[in-house]
Amino acid sequence: MQLTRAGFLVLLWLFVLAALRVVRSDLYAASGLRASGLPGFRRSEKSARGSKAPRQLVVTHGALTGTRISLDGRPILIGRADDSTLVLDDDFASTRHARLSMRGTDWYVEDLGSTNGTYLDRAKVTAPLRVPLGTPIRIGKTVIELRS
């Protein structure tokens, strides 16, 4: 009887540890870091682009600071609209403010007719501009940049 009692408690704790293990392995998945570490992701990206290709978009200033979105080749919409990839909660952003899209191996930013404009580093974006790694893009109070 003593054995079964202790055994059950051990199993209960094993369940807790297993759950925590799932949590640990999942920690980076939601932030987009782990997704880029998956074998499937790595292979397809390596073959498509060089090793210095941007892999994620990071918000460096503003209310959403720290948000990361992993780039998978699909365009990224930024604005206050609910269906944007990056939903901004900012009085200075427009409903559809800007779009980041990939052409060839490079990412381009274009302004979607926003009221207050989009800035790449210091320059106002009027036509699609190529976005180098680590260059700040300013949208309202939010600053984002691409990282590898």
């Binding site: 499937g40 292979r43 998978d72």
Partner: peptide, 10 residues
């Protein structure tokens, strides 16, 4: 299941 652009559902 697929090695393509698919996030794990777990």
């Amino acid at each position: 299941t697929s090695p393509g652009l698919k996030a794990p559902t777990r």
